[in-house]
């Protein structure tokens, strides 16, 4: 129960802090919470199941394009577009899961990388629909909720919609990973052969983990597209596959609160360095190398060890 209280406290703190944040950080925290949903989704596959994906941009972009294209071409309202985005991500996850059903290890990460790259190239190739690099700028009608009209351009709406998605993703992943299903995922990460020997259909569990992870990532993409009113090819680029890996590694793999923490730190690091140079992605490269060399367990692992030493 203590662990649920801790997670609820984080959500409550994020709700409370919106009344005190200056405008600039208000926007930053909104983005961080959305990206954190993506990171939480990534962590289910990488941190808990032990499958390293280099192509999660595929799912993020599936969500974003599912929402953006239906809203732009078929005039879907924000709620219907969100549903379409999540549905698209679910569909893409299912198909990807079937393709990689038997692959693990090195083959798994190469296939995910390549599928994401194929998706990226497709968004460029079908530019009459997606408008390619330039992307689609959306203008969406307000959402009617309890008689009030919520305008998506309003920063408070963006903040609280992101907070709701973050809370749902965080508590869902916590509940999932403490359930018997989550225990099997962890067992697969630790020793897949032994888990199979115990009678679990590990390929099926891996498939399920991929679908949940991909759909959560797609939820982040769909909301990002709707709240910021834009979707373009860059959403499917390698950068959006690298970032969730960095967020998860920095925060600590296999810890529910690790990836959100890693997301926040990375976001501010990139934010500061992009003011100094246009080659700000070098920060991401240096961070990845530094983590592999000196912090393989991330911040959460470091914190755990520090507590163990103290007690």
């Amino acid at each position: 129960m203590r662990i649920y209280a801790l997670h609820l406290a984080v959500v409550a703190a994020l709700f409370a802090v919106q009344f005190a944040l200056p405008a600039y950080h208000y926007g930053n925290v909104t983005r961080i919470m959305l990206y954190a949903v993506f990171a939480i989704g990534y962590n289910i596959l990488f941190g808990y199941t032990g499958l390293l994906s280099l192509g999660h941009a595929l799912f993020f972009a599936a969500g974003a394009y599912g929402a953006g294209l239906t809203a732009h071409w078929w005039s879907f309202g924000p709620v219907a577009a969100l549903g379409a985005g999540v549905g698209a991500a679910l569909l893409v996850s299912l198909v990807t899961g079937l393709i990689v059903y038997r692959t693990t290890g090195v083959a798994f990460l190469i296939v995910t990388l390549m599928l994401a790259q194929a998706a990226f190239l497709s968004t460029l190739y079908f530019n009459t629909v997606t408008l390619g690099d330039q992307g689609i700028v959306l203008s969406l009608p307000p959402v009617e909720l309890f008689g009030a009209a919520l305008h998506l351009a309003d920063p408070a709406v963006k903040y609280n919609a992101s907070l709701v998605a973050f809370a749902v993703a965080l508590l869902l992943s916590l509940w999932l990973l403490r359930s018997p299903f989550g225990r099997v995922l962890i067992a697969i990460r630790e020793n897949e052969a032994r888990t199979r020997l115990l009678g679990y259909n590990t390929a099926l569990y891996r498939f399920a983990a991929l679908v949940i992870s991909g759909t959560l990532s797609g939820l982040a993409g769909a909301l990002y597209c709707l709240l910021f009113g834009y979707v373009g090819s860059s959403f499917a680029s390698l950068q959006y596959s690298t970032l969730p890996l960095l967020w998860t590694l920095l925060g600590g793999t296999g810890v529910t609160l690790g990836p959100p923490l890693g997301t926040a730190i990375t976001h501010y690091l990139i934010d500061i360095s992009s003011g100094l140079t246009s080659s700000y992605m070098i920060i991401v490269g240096v961070a990845l190398v530094a983590i592999t060399l000196w912090f393989p367990e991330g911040l959460a692992g470091w914190f755990r060890r520090w507590r163990r030493v103290r007690s």
């Binding site: 690298t242 080659s279 070098i282 961070a287 190398v289």
Partner: peptide, 21 residues
């Protein structure tokens, strides 16, 4: 194997962004 992939991914960005600079 896994840590090497992450490290070479970092190397990718360091080289690419270093050339951009």
């Amino acid at each position: 194997p896994e840590r090497t992939i992450v490290a070479t991914m970092g190397l990718l960005y360091i080289i690419q962004q270093g050339v951009l600079m």
